[in-house]
Design a protein around this nucleic acid. Sequence first.
DNA 1: TTACTGACCTGCACGC
DNA 2: TGCGTGCAGGTCAGTA
Length: 286
Amino acid sequence: MPELPEVEVVRRGLERFIVGRRIIDVEVLHPRAVRRHAPGAVDFVAALIGARPVAAHRRGKYLWLPMDDGDTALLAHLGMSGQMLVESSSVPDELHLRVRMRFEDGDPQLRFVDQRTFGGLAMSRTTEGGVPTEITHIALDPLDPAFDDGAFARALRRRRTGIKRALLDQMLISGVGNIYADEALWQARLHYARPTETMSGPEIARVLDGMRSVLAAALQERGTSFDSLYVDVNGTSGYFERSLQVYGRAGQPCRRCGTPIRRDAFMNRSSYTCPRCQPRPRRAHW
DNA sequence: TTACTGACCTGCACGC
DNA sequence: TGCGTGCAGGTCAGTA
């Protein structure tokens, strides 16, 4: 499931293999893949043909390639199962190939493959700061040098919710999904239902430290892979799954204290905690 | 204004 | 063997 580390690995691949190459052909093979491009697939194709990406940027889980016209960008979100593959035209089409781009200098081509179609591409106008207008509401991620720990702590305490809900809110902090939220909270020894409004400064610092350490470690391992759904631009899976401490380990011993890891249903998904290291708070936001 | 819920979507695992 | 069901989860519109 692509979260910040996985998206960053893909961004680096696009920067290496796609930036600087002029697009000469675009095929949209599934309209849902460009549903976020309001004017439709025909307009999406027309906007891209002739354009040349000049950089590859990321904010949270969003990727964008600014174009050489100076005020548009190709905006991408991988959703649950999106893949950006840089491949030779001789490679057979993937079953879930949604969009293909060909370039003036020939191979390799860029393919957007997405099994569950939660992801998508769009052409977007950019702000003066170079950020696509559609994602200006997305907060910075904790690895961004401009991320303000103090402002995050103040915003967190203004909320009346549980810490995990807050961490998954991309308007508060971006790049963190279900997997890394569970991992960071285990690192910080905090339960997911811990009320944000009463969190102490050291507790918030532990959460930020936990997030940064888990995201950095995942980046080092080129991301997490549970199946074939997350791969880099060359189709290679990451290795961080082997380093996960709680996520997906229900019933297995906590690597800190040996207590069996517990799985709870939470927000229509799963939450993994160690009942001993991360005790339920007396007052909780479920 | 803020917090929360459900829908979207497809493939796989599992039980019957 | 085949069918039905549950599960995985990021985002956003709608609701309370």
